[in-house]
Deep mutational scan, measured.
Amino acid sequence: KFNKELSVAGREIVTLPNLNDPQKKAFIFSLWDDPSQSANLLAEAKKLNDAQAPK
């Protein structure tokens, strides 16, 4: 279960257009550290992506 959630969340995070590479890497490392938090980490990444969207 975690492997699928981890890969789905990881793929989504790397495609978020408004995150820079260090931010993406930080989220990916957090996913590896605790795969059970993949849904929460993906939600946080999406929030940050939205907040950094060009206005």
Results as ranks from 00 to 15, higher is better:
residue 1 K to E: 13
residue 1 K to N: 12
residue 1 K to I: 14
residue 1 K to V: 13
residue 2 F to R: 07
residue 2 F to L: 11
residue 2 F to K: 07
residue 2 F to Y: 11
residue 3 N to S: 12
residue 3 N to C: 15
residue 3 N to M: 12
residue 3 N to G: 13
residue 3 N to F: 14
residue 4 K to G: 11
residue 4 K to L: 09
residue 4 K to H: 12
residue 4 K to D: 10
residue 4 K to V: 13
residue 4 K to T: 12
residue 5 E to N: 10
residue 5 E to A: 12
residue 5 E to S: 11
residue 5 E to P: 10
residue 6 L to V: 11
residue 6 L to M: 10
residue 6 L to H: 05
residue 6 L to S: 05
residue 6 L to W: 09
residue 7 S to E: 13
residue 7 S to A: 13
residue 7 S to N: 08
residue 7 S to K: 07
residue 7 S to Y: 14
residue 8 V to G: 08
residue 8 V to K: 13
residue 8 V to Y: 12
residue 8 V to F: 11
residue 9 A to S: 06
residue 9 A to V: 15
residue 10 G to D: 04
residue 10 G to S: 14
residue 10 G to M: 15
residue 10 G to E: 15
residue 11 R to H: 10
residue 11 R to V: 07
residue 11 R to S: 07
residue 11 R to E: 07
residue 12 E to K: 09
residue 12 E to Y: 14
residue 12 E to R: 06
residue 12 E to V: 13
residue 13 I to A: 01
residue 13 I to H: 01
residue 13 I to F: 03
residue 13 I to N: 00
residue 14 V to E: 13
residue 14 V to K: 06
residue 14 V to C: 15
residue 14 V to W: 15
residue 15 T to L: 14
residue 15 T to Y: 07
residue 15 T to I: 07
residue 15 T to V: 08
residue 15 T to D: 12
residue 15 T to G: 13
residue 15 T to Q: 14
residue 15 T to R: 14
residue 16 L to E: 01
residue 16 L to K: 01
residue 17 P to T: 08
residue 17 P to K: 11
residue 17 P to D: 04
residue 17 P to V: 06
residue 18 N to T: 01
residue 18 N to Q: 03
residue 18 N to S: 03
residue 18 N to H: 14
residue 18 N to C: 08
residue 18 N to W: 15
residue 18 N to A: 05
residue 18 N to E: 02
residue 18 N to G: 00
residue 18 N to K: 02
residue 19 L to P: 00
residue 19 L to Q: 00
residue 19 L to T: 00
residue 19 L to C: 03
residue 19 L to A: 00
residue 19 L to M: 01
residue 20 N to H: 08
residue 21 D to F: 11
residue 21 D to E: 12
residue 21 D to Y: 13
residue 21 D to S: 07
residue 21 D to Q: 09
residue 22 P to V: 14
residue 22 P to G: 14
residue 22 P to W: 15
residue 22 P to C: 15
residue 22 P to I: 15
residue 22 P to Q: 15
residue 23 Q to E: 03
residue 23 Q to S: 02
residue 23 Q to V: 03
residue 23 Q to T: 04
residue 23 Q to K: 02
residue 24 K to W: 04
residue 24 K to Y: 03
residue 24 K to I: 08
residue 24 K to G: 01
residue 25 K to H: 09
residue 25 K to C: 15
residue 25 K to A: 13
residue 25 K to Q: 13
residue 26 A to P: 03
residue 26 A to R: 11
residue 26 A to C: 14
residue 27 F to V: 00
residue 27 F to A: 00
residue 27 F to I: 02
residue 28 I to G: 01
residue 28 I to W: 05
residue 28 I to E: 03
residue 29 F to S: 07
residue 29 F to W: 12
residue 29 F to P: 01
residue 29 F to E: 06
residue 29 F to Q: 09
residue 29 F to I: 08
residue 30 S to D: 05
residue 30 S to L: 14
residue 30 S to F: 09
residue 30 S to P: 00
residue 30 S to M: 14
residue 30 S to G: 06
residue 30 S to R: 15
residue 30 S to N: 08
residue 30 S to Y: 08
residue 30 S to I: 08
residue 31 L to E: 02
residue 31 L to M: 09
residue 31 L to A: 02
residue 32 W to G: 04
residue 32 W to V: 06
residue 32 W to A: 06
residue 32 W to P: 02
residue 32 W to R: 01
residue 32 W to T: 06
residue 32 W to C: 14
residue 33 D to A: 14
residue 33 D to P: 00
residue 33 D to V: 10
residue 34 D to Q: 07
residue 34 D to E: 06
residue 34 D to M: 06
residue 34 D to V: 04
residue 35 P to Q: 03
residue 35 P to I: 03
residue 35 P to L: 02
residue 35 P to Y: 04
residue 35 P to M: 04
residue 35 P to N: 03
residue 36 S to H: 06
residue 36 S to P: 04
residue 36 S to N: 06
residue 36 S to Q: 06
residue 36 S to E: 08
residue 37 Q to S: 06
residue 37 Q to Y: 03
residue 37 Q to L: 06
residue 37 Q to A: 11
residue 38 S to T: 12
residue 38 S to W: 15
residue 39 A to C: 10
residue 39 A to Y: 07
residue 39 A to F: 09
residue 39 A to V: 08
residue 39 A to S: 09
residue 39 A to T: 07
residue 40 N to G: 08
residue 40 N to E: 11
residue 41 L to R: 02
residue 41 L to V: 12
residue 41 L to C: 05
residue 41 L to N: 02
residue 41 L to G: 02
residue 42 L to T: 03
residue 42 L to A: 03
residue 42 L to C: 03
residue 42 L to W: 04
residue 42 L to H: 01
residue 42 L to Y: 03
residue 43 A to G: 04
residue 43 A to Y: 10
residue 43 A to R: 10
residue 43 A to W: 08
residue 43 A to L: 10
residue 44 E to G: 04
residue 44 E to S: 07
residue 44 E to Q: 12
residue 44 E to F: 09
residue 45 A to F: 02
residue 45 A to D: 02
residue 45 A to L: 01
residue 45 A to S: 02
residue 45 A to M: 02
residue 45 A to N: 01
residue 46 K to N: 06
residue 46 K to W: 05
residue 46 K to V: 06
residue 46 K to G: 02
residue 46 K to Y: 09
residue 46 K to D: 01
residue 46 K to H: 10
residue 47 K to E: 07
residue 47 K to I: 08
residue 47 K to L: 09
residue 47 K to A: 13
residue 47 K to G: 04
residue 48 L to K: 04
residue 48 L to W: 04
residue 48 L to D: 01
residue 49 N to I: 01
residue 49 N to M: 02
residue 49 N to C: 04
residue 49 N to R: 02
residue 49 N to S: 06
residue 50 D to E: 13
residue 50 D to R: 08
residue 50 D to G: 06
residue 50 D to H: 07
residue 50 D to K: 08
residue 50 D to S: 08
residue 51 A to I: 11
residue 51 A to R: 10
residue 51 A to P: 01
residue 51 A to T: 06
residue 51 A to G: 04
residue 51 A to V: 07
residue 51 A to N: 06
residue 52 Q to L: 08
residue 52 Q to C: 08
residue 52 Q to A: 04
residue 52 Q to R: 04
residue 52 Q to I: 04
residue 52 Q to T: 03
residue 52 Q to D: 02
residue 52 Q to S: 04
residue 53 A to L: 05
residue 53 A to N: 06
residue 53 A to H: 05
residue 53 A to Q: 08
residue 54 P to K: 09
residue 54 P to E: 08
residue 54 P to L: 10
residue 54 P to G: 09
residue 54 P to V: 09
residue 55 K to W: 06
residue 55 K to I: 11
residue 55 K to M: 12
residue 55 K to F: 10
